[in-house]
Design a protein around this nucleic acid. Structure first.
Lengths: 206, 206, 206, 206
DNA sequence: CATGAATGAGTGTTCATTCAT
DNA sequence: GATGAATGAACACTCATTCAT
């Protein structure tokens, strides 16, 4: 049990370091300094630096699932858009709370670096699966427009929300409940009614 | 003059290598091999690896501006949404054509790594400025909803379009004109009318 | 008493590991795994890795002495060459039975590595003393040629027999009684009559 | 060309270090200190420590072949035993001159350590091939006894001569021509007429 | 006594950068 | 200007040993 606590402690410290420096510029040396442990200790818990990083992402992914998930009862009690809003808000809350993770995700890049690809890729795929699941549900419930491309919408949602989190982290120290609500509402507006004024759309449709 | 050609040649090769491996896993050695030049030569044209990378991004940024820009005459001849569509399409074309750059942007991450931050950050800021300019124009022309947050919309647009580019690169070898048009239309739909059916929105508004 | 048994058990396991991997590539970790003991336990019985190795050699040396030794009564009942043959055969039997030791001796090298030198050196000196004792006995009994150099003959015997043991271990799984007899005879032949045909030697002598 | 000289210089220094400390206790750091080169330089010429060691052995093997080899004309002018003596003497001269190599061979062990086995093994195989070639020649020329086992004789010769070289290195600073001749003669005696007095052999034969 | 989690000095190796030619 | 051999600071990782439990 104490071992598990220590493992978690190392992961916490590693997260802090990776968030600050990014994968490549974060040194194992840095992590052990922050964690106040010996150099060899880290290798008792993780095979190597890559394994440490992967373990970190996996743990955060689990956390994310827990934070964002919603019980089936709750689904019924919410109207579709409120449900969608709930999801978005929870995601923003999660990214706001776990700014270190957000920083890691953004710094490392979603890209397909041969070494890190499988790590970050795994994370991104999971995120995508979750969102795609919601959108498919929305389609079955006849909530979404028929002409909406689900894959693309997922991409825009992920890309958009991450970019917003990135800016929030850069500008505001930590968002409070009200600011999060505000952010969520602004985000929703784009995806509910689009950017343009109705009259412009009407012109365009004709 | 020959020097300038050589510089461009090195940048081309560096781009290829950075696109394939990402900043950290791309070695100067790799670049000089691809460029068929001596190891010292690269340092005649660039202060160091970082400068090489920065120069690369700056050049691509200039290219991007040229590709995406639109003359003032053309603006008048287009209705607002078509203008917006034109911008999006040009961006997709650019990212599609310059897949190496797209790959670099995604691999390196938009993040704020102490070393690379100023490089990628510079690029991202420029991208943002351009889009923000368009959106402000749209606001002045009374095209956009009043309740739209410009900064956020910019974030969503950048994040979304990059994420889409990332997936397009991963899945399709190279997009043809038709596919680009299709992609653009799908993208536009989200931002024109939102994701939800009108009746759902009506329910929510009440 | 139980402590002594445990010590012996550790030595047995250490022998197995050292034989398989050699001194440097055998890890204390490997030994404790084979011995099914805790990591600290080995240091209850041995000062350090070097001490463990030395203890191993000392024990084997004692065993070797017992295996090869012959009672004084038996000496009288044997003719000189048979006595010599007996010694050789016993040595081959010993090396064959204790292939792990043979492997260790050959892998570690007789060399004079600063750290291991004193260990292996000790073993080699003992081996040499024993053989030299026999040869001196032979000289006193007027059995050996007068022009034979005892030190050199000892070297050749040790070097030769170890090299043969090495090849036997590499090629044959385990020698049976008959094969050992055969090996002994072949070995003896060289040292009894030399390599060359009598007529060749006669020519050379003139 | 200068590169080749530098390579040879590094090999010389590496040989010195390996001879003094053995493979495992010789550090790359030691070699670069002796060679007065930068740490990276060694990796310009050799893939890694193992490659450095292997290259060393290969070079010495070539040298050994040259030193020990004898022209075809010379073969005809020598009687069989003189030819054999010539070979032995040349080998002793080689091992005496190249005491560092001898030390390396003895320190590393002829053994079959998984990592070094293929290196030392290669060397030992070559040595064996050469000697075996001579012995087979002797057999064809009807010089050697018919009851002599060639493989075993080869083993005894290699083992014996290495063990002698080991002792010579330990005891005498450097052998002069006369001492080498003396050593060769003593060595030859064993293999020409055996150890025992004729009358003892006669008794045994009966 | 036995244990095994914790340790850190010590290694091999990499790769951006320099500078003599 | 062009080159590439030389460099060494930096880094991940190992493994014998210790010591609190």
């Amino acid at each position: 049990m104490k071992a598990e606590l220590r493992r978690q402690h190392i992961l916490d410290c590693a997260k802090q370091v990776f968030a600050e420096k990014g994968y490549y510029e974060a040194y194992v040396e840095d992590v052990i300094k922050v964690a106040h442990i010996g150099k060899g200790t880290i290798y008792e818990y993780f095979r190597n630096k890559e394994d440490l990083f992967l373990s970190l992402l996996i743990r955060s992914l689990e956390e994310w699932k827990r934070t964002v998930s919603i019980s089936h009862q709750d689904i019924k009690s919410l109207d579709p858009i409120s449900y969608f809003r709930y999801r978005i808000k929870r995601t923003i809350i999660f990214l706001n709370n776990d700014r270190q993770l957000t920083s890691i995700l953004l710094k490392t890049g979603f890209g397909f670096n041969p070494h890190i690809q499988k790590l970050i890729g795994e994370f991104e795929k999971n995120l995508r699966t979750h969102i795609l699941y919601d959108l498919r549900l929305g389609k079955r419930l006849n909530i979404l427009r028929n002409d909406i491309d689900l894959q693309m919408t997922t991409s825009i949602l992920i890309g958009g929300i991450l970019m917003i989190a990135y800016h929030a982290i850069l500008t505001v120290p930590n968002l409070n409940e009200m600011e999060i609500d505000d952010l969520t509402d602004k985000f929703m507006k784009i995806f509910i009614k689009g950017m343009f004024k109705p009259e412009i759309i009407d012109q365009y449709d004709k």
